[in-house]
Simulated scan of single mutants.
Amino acid sequence: MAIGTRDTEKPLRILQLIPSLEAGGAERACLDIAAALSAEGGTSWVFSEGGRMADELSTLGGVLVKRAAATKNPARIIAHGFAIAALARSHAIDIIHARSRAPAWSGLIAAKLTGLPYVTTFHGFYGAQNSLKRLYNSVMIRGDRVIAGSQFMASHIHDTYHCPHDRIALIPRGIDTDRFDPARIDAQAVHALRQKWGASPAQKVILLPGRLTRWKGQGLLLDAVARLNDPALFTVMVGDPQGREGYVSELKTQIDRLGLANAVHIAGHVDDMPTAYQAADIIVSASTDAEAFGRVPVEAMAMGKPIVAADHGGASETLRGAEGQAAFGTLFTPGDAAALAAALQQIPALPAPEMATAARAYVIANYSTQSMCRRTLALYRSLCAAGRAT
């Protein structure tokens, strides 16, 4: 795409495209970038259906452009492309950045119409079972730069979609290490939350954070806990079902069938996740499909909590650390309830304080929001300075 001359010293004006702002890692990254842009005098417009995070976006200095951005209707995707192009022209946008496939097609159209640099971020592994699906997914490699949140994801993008290495930008996802700081959590709030969940002071709480969807592994964790048959354990699942009430009913049926009605609590969406982590004794990431990055292990590490995670995807990469060993958590074979149960049994009653300190230090050094935002904004500026896409 041809890119006109821009003043790379002026504050950046970025248009991000994302289906909704309900909850999730892509949504959080979108808001983090909006906040970083605002902090240096720039602005992020966000083309999205909106959601519970829309007010926070506004507070952070972002501007919501409310549209049905999740649509897969070809006519509406094309219409959105022209609308995004018009928006980009009227607000002198510097970069269009797409974070999901459906709006990415609209963004691609707009980038071609305007000549603006186009960035995409792979926030997940997309099914590529047939040629039609691969074609649909391919929009995510049509950016001037394609952001991968982990080395595992970068390899997947190159190997599956044959995207050249020089167009893939490895920018690890980041978390707010000030917010996810055990020293900042109120002990009374922790006590109240455990009571709300129904866990007794003597019980060890196992926490699985993540959207209530099958591939996040809630059912797998229930099977593992049932195998342990330990009354000292209490399991909590936090996450938004996002309309999957049928799946929630399945989980409740599974809980009753396994005799875990008094040992499991489905909490739904939780705003104060740092307090939820602090209220737990063990954090679990049981995703049956590989995570592109996996915030849960990193958030758990920042909170100094023991983490048990499926050994694949971004989670495997972050927990192994620089030396390639499982230095910061316990890994288990994905999809294997017996292996998960065995991993849970390996967690000591009193984790070593030095391990918690080392894990938090590793997150601060490698996976902070500040680092992610700094590198993303530098990527934006490099594209603006180039004068044309490479």
Rank of each mutant, 00 (worst) to 15 (best):
A322Y: 06
E49M: 14
L17C: 08
L37V: 00
I157M: 05
G243N: 11
S285Y: 01
I33H: 12
A315Q: 11
R67N: 08
H158R: 14
M140N: 07
A261V: 12
Y380F: 11
F180E: 00
T177S: 08
I3S: 13
A280D: 02
L12S: 10
H165M: 13
E49K: 12
A349W: 07
D144S: 14
G50Q: 03
P201G: 10
A267S: 10
A386G: 12
A79W: 02
M1F: 07
A292M: 06
T330I: 10
T275P: 03
P306Y: 03
P11K: 09
G51Y: 05
A54R: 12
L258Y: 04
A300T: 10
D272I: 08
D176M: 07
Y247S: 08
A35K: 06
Q151H: 12
I109R: 09
A83N: 05
D311P: 00
G329E: 05
S58E: 15
P209L: 02
R227Y: 03
S150V: 00
Q203Y: 04
H156Y: 14
A36Q: 01
V236Q: 01
L233D: 08
A386N: 10
I206C: 04
C30P: 00
L233N: 08
E9C: 10
Y126W: 14
I96M: 04
E354A: 15
L251N: 06
G294C: 02
I93T: 09
A29G: 15
R257H: 14
Q188I: 10
E291L: 08
S44F: 03
H97C: 12
G62K: 02
I255V: 12
A342V: 02
V363K: 09
